[in-house]
Design a protein around this nucleic acid. Structure first.
Lengths: 188, 188
DNA sequence: CTTTTTACTGAATAAATATTCACTTATATT
DNA sequence: AATATAAGTGAATATTTATTCAGTAAAAAG
């Protein structure tokens, strides 16, 4: 009986290694050692390295989409709704920093196919819908949604890295401040 | 006599390959083939793969710093000065997209040492100084400079990727619009 | 409890990749 | 022009790494 905990251990090992060595310098030997299992066992759970990386990528993607839009209620007014999603995404990336880095690394790697990459882009879909709503309500600037989303997500990503690498804690106050920065940029 | 053009060809090959295959999936064979030279010749120019990647990383770093602050005059008022640097950086990353991606990939790779990484961080130094000046003149928000810089650079990076991957052209108008987005975020 | 099936192991093998080197070609020196 | 020095080559070698597999341990079925 294949062990769900073992999947978790394997994935955990990859995530731990990616921030240290990057995708490039991660061997199957490294992974199995970090996971505390034999190298051969990796092949009980996955056909090959490619499949392993893609499976983890897919898992991360689903996970992040699920968490990001948790508790979102389209009935509430735009700004608080946008704020809660923004906070969700920020928190998610901070608390799952390794997943975040792993996904970034995968994006330009030979492991991930163009199709998988396109699916990943759909993470942004609900965010686009939200932006469209904000524009309809004339609350945010009427620019191409692509530009707005890129701006919002890009700024957040770099913030997450900044916070992580400097080891500073993100207080509630600082999160609010940072959200305001973003809001001032996009508000109409 | 070692050929400067050959350095350029080798570097060019690595940059061309990194957007296709990533750092992970780039062999010395790939590089030499792309550069149109024999594999052995790579070892005339560089001790090994590690040295090659690090040399290119250093070159990209110097190049980008030099270009970003070109034509900056500390005497002119803050906003136009900030604007010209912002535009320089944006243009640089757009026109040297491969360098930009290469540098990002290196950051979490096993090729780049912690020391090299720290040096790279210094790219931002003059930008920090500029931010400090803007704060002293009470033109931009009085937040931690780290947060402001992360926000500005992060938003720009994602914009660059967005523009590149969608193949859209960045008109003067759109560049201005995007700068305004950034300015609205940080202005006091 | 015995049998069967499945997971697990890690050394052995295969495949991929970095690096070397004996040799050729080009460039500089006298 | 003859000689010396350096660059360039790519097949051969060394190294690293993915993958397999024969054997062992554990779990399910009977």
């Amino acid at each position: 009986m294949k062990d769900d905990k073992k999947y978790a251990r394997i994935f955990g090992a990859v995530l731990k290694l990616v921030t240290k060595k990057g995708l490039a310098g991660m061997t199957m030997g490294d992974i199995s050692k970090e996971a505390g299992i034999a190298t051969g066992t990796l092949y009980v759970y996955f056909d090959n390295k490619d499949a392993l990386i893609n499976a983890l990528f897919a898992a991360c993607r689903e996970n992040s989409v699920m968490v990001s839009f948790r508790g979102y209620d389209a009935q509430q007014p735009f700004k608080p709704g946008f704020r809660s999603i923004w906070m969700n995404i920020l928190r998610y990336r901070l608390h799952n920093f390794e997943e975040f880095i792993f996904q970034e690394q995968c994006y330009h790697s030979p492991y991930i196919t163009a199709a998988t990459r396109e699916k990943a882009r759909q993470l942004a879909e609900p965010l686009y819908a939200l932006i469209a709503r904000g524009q309809k309500e004339q609350l945010i600037k009427n620019l191409e949604p692509d530009i707005l989303v890129a701006f919002i997500i890009g700024a957040m990503n770099e913030l997450v890295k900044q916070i992580h690498y400097t080891g500073s804690t993100l207080t509630k106050t600082r999160m609010n401040t940072t959200f305001d920065l973003c809001w001032d940029a996009i508000k109409a």
